[in-house]
């Protein structure tokens, strides 16, 4: 017994180091596993408050460009309104799609785009009805999916994150693929697993697909920049130039699918019955 105490006393610094390293490594591993929410995020009162204060100052520098963006979006919406039942022009607005979607607005208070796994912080939380797995879009296109929420703030997995996978399709011929990010350039994403029989051209528009329960169909994502053929699988891999400038985001919209509960329970029952 005496020896055990002696051992602990002699190596107390080493043991403390191993304990702290163990805690931090378990946090790291937890953050790298896909379907687990992380425990240390910026969606909390302290960092949310700090980022809000920084943003309160910074927003004045981008007032002009933000106003222009909002005016352009208003013009787009007015165009849809005045053109009545023009179903071709309605693709830029989530509300034009049949479904049970609720849209609320929010603002980005912290943004990252230089790492391989990027997250945004927005200033809406559970008090505003934000929940995990809601979609986040801007007037130009898809931004990400809500991950963690606190009372007044939420973190968003950005499309610039190697762990995100979105269902997307080529707008003109409805061929589906999976949208990923390769961790390299903040302006581009990849659309993988597009079948070879699909006709793809440089400049074709990519939009969200209809299989997702998070995003409505036909929200714009980007344009085809380059076409590759995956040598192993013989599928197309398309490099997509994103419509959004992910390095300067301010006003965003949060999309809630009211039917998500019904769909997921139905799917869970179906798979359980098999």
């Amino acid at each position: 017994m005496q020896q055990i105490f002696n051992f602990i006393f002699k190596n107390s610094i080493l043991l403390l180091f191993l304990l702290l390293l163990g805690i931090s490594l378990s946090l790291v591993i937890q953050s790298h596993s896909y379907h687990r929410s992380r425990s240390v995020t910026s969606a909390n009162a302290v960092s949310g408050y700090v980022y809000q204060k920084i943003n309160d100052v910074e927003q004045y520098f981008s007032l002009k460009t933000e106003n222009e963006k909002l005016a352009a979006e208003n013009a787009e919406l007015k165009k849809i309104l005045y053109n009545g039942k023009d179903s071709i022009a309605t693709t830029t607005t989530p509300t034009a799609v049949t479904g049970n979607f609720v849209v609320t607005q929010s603002r980005v208070i912290s943004n990252s785009f230089g790492k391989r796994d990027n997250y945004l912080t927005i200033n809406s939380g559970t008090n505003d009805g934000v929940k995990r797995d809601m979609g986040v879009v801007s007037s130009l296109g898809v931004i990400g999916i809500i991950e963690n929420t606190s009372k007044n703030y939420s973190t968003v997995i950005s499309v610039l994150n190697t762990r995100i996978k979105l269902d997307a399709k080529i707008k003109k011929n409805n061929h589906f693929g999976t949208l990923k990010w390769d961790g390299k350039n903040a302006g581009f994403a990849l659309l993988t697993e597009v079948p070879r029989l699909a006709e793809v051209n440089k400049g074709d528009t990519i939009v969200t697909g209809g299989r997702s329960v998070i995003f409505p169909e036909n929200i714009p994502i980007g344009k085809i920049e380059k076409v590759f053929i995956d040598k192993k699988t013989n599928y197309y891999t398309l490099q997509i130039r994103l419509f959004n400038d992910m390095t300067s985001l301010d006003h965003v919209y949060i999309i809630e699918n009211k039917d998500i509960q019904e769909i997921t329970t139905l799917e869970a029952q179906t798979t359980a019955n098999e």
Partner: peptide, 28 residues
Amino acid sequence: LLLSSFFLGLIVDMFLNSGGVHAAACVT
């Protein structure tokens, strides 16, 4: 030093949404 480095790294992690990577690097 070990304890304060751990918390220093953890707070930076909190702001950067980086899991626990700064805490681990600081403690080491």
